[in-house]
């Protein structure tokens, strides 16, 4: 699985190849096809035969009929998924691979995965407002459009996730799966309010909180003028003096998101840019499977 490490994947030039590489590599590593059961739509019951997985037995029906039936899901669904990518300037941070590049590759991989599962996938790219919106479609040709849009995007501007999510939630008419890729550097309370609205409208939400490991550890030693990447204000800081304070405040910040998303039953994955893509994807799929 070393091939799926971000630094390796990033060496592949084209985004579509990277997405394919990630997904195919990921599928090869799995013992069980993710296609089974990866759906939101229930289809029918069928009788149980020896050898069938026990965990798919419908125990409620067994309670009523005293017979074993399995729940059968529709393999091809008409699920529509939105990939929402934060392209704010703060996403442009990273040594070997920036948060934005990581998020973009992850989004492309998920687009590839979803489209090959016959789901329809749309793309929203935003900073302080929605910069690009591609409605969901399920054809494989749609993938090219998504990947081209992703490839042509570079980070800029400030971010305003809460406003974007709030506005976007009000425009979604069909129940959808919304997958967000962002560093969520905004007031957690405002962000949670926006996601709550999305959730109220019966949408499923998955949040990939993408951070650099520097942001987690803050292991700098050199005194410097630290400049905010979005509003460009500077402050002279000796990291040694402020490290503990920073870590404490940053963990509080993460904990606010963790507890907020858990409270609202929103799937939340904290991923650093040195995490292998397959780990990110499998973590996502495992959580997704558990939800179903």
């Amino acid at each position: 699985m070393d091939l799926l490490k971000p630094e390796v994947i990033e060496k592949v030039g084209a985004l579509n190849f990277r997405a394919r590489l990630v997904v195919e590599g990921f599928l090869i590593g799995l013992h069980q096809s993710p296609y089974h059961g990866f759906s939101l739509e229930f289809c029918e019951h069928r009788p149980y035969y020896p050898g069938d997985p026990i965990n798919r037995i419908d125990w409620k029906l067994y309670g009523r009929t005293d017979r074993y039936y399995l729940r059968k899901y529709q393999a091809e669904t008409n699920l529509s998924a939105y990939l929402i990518l934060d392209k704010s300037k703060s996403m442009d941070y990273g040594k070997e691979i920036t948060k934005f590049h990581y998020a973009r590759t992850l989004a492309a991989s998920l687009a590839y995965l979803l489209l090959h599962q016959n789901d329809s996938v749309g793309l929203v790219i935003f900073d302080n407002e929605i910069k690009s919106l591609i409605p969901p479609k399920s054809s494989l040709n749609h993938l090219k459009l998504l990947l081209r849009d992703l490839a042509n995007t570079e980070p800029s501007q400030k971010t305003s996730i809460s406003d974007v999510i709030f506005n976007f939630a009000s425009t979604i008419k069909k129940r959808s799966l919304i997958i967000v890729f962002s560093d969520l550097l905004e007031d957690p309370e405002k962000v949670m309010k926006a996601f709550k609205l999305v959730k109220v409208r019966k949408n499923e939400v998955i949040v990939f909180h993408i951070l650099d490991s520097d942001e987690m550890k803050f292991n700098f030693t050199e005194q410097a003028l630290y400049r905010d990447m979005e509003d460009h204000t500077t402050v002279p800081v000796n990291p040694l003096n402020i490290r503990d304070l920073y870590r404490k405040r940053f963990n509080q910040f993460l904990e606010q998101y963790r507890s907020g998303f858990a409270y609202n039953r929103i799937d939340y994955s904290l991923i650093t840019t040195d995490t292998a893509y397959d780990e990110a994807l499998s973590a996502y799929l495992i959580k997704r499977k558990r939800l179903l």
Binding site: Y93, L225, P236
Partner: peptide, 18 residues
């Protein structure tokens, strides 16, 4: 002030702004 290196970092000031 001039000698000090400018370092772009996204989350420090975000955390400290509070």
């Amino acid at each position: 002030k001039r000698i000090l290196r400018n370092k772009d970092f996204p989350s420090l000031l975000f955390v400290l702004k509070s």
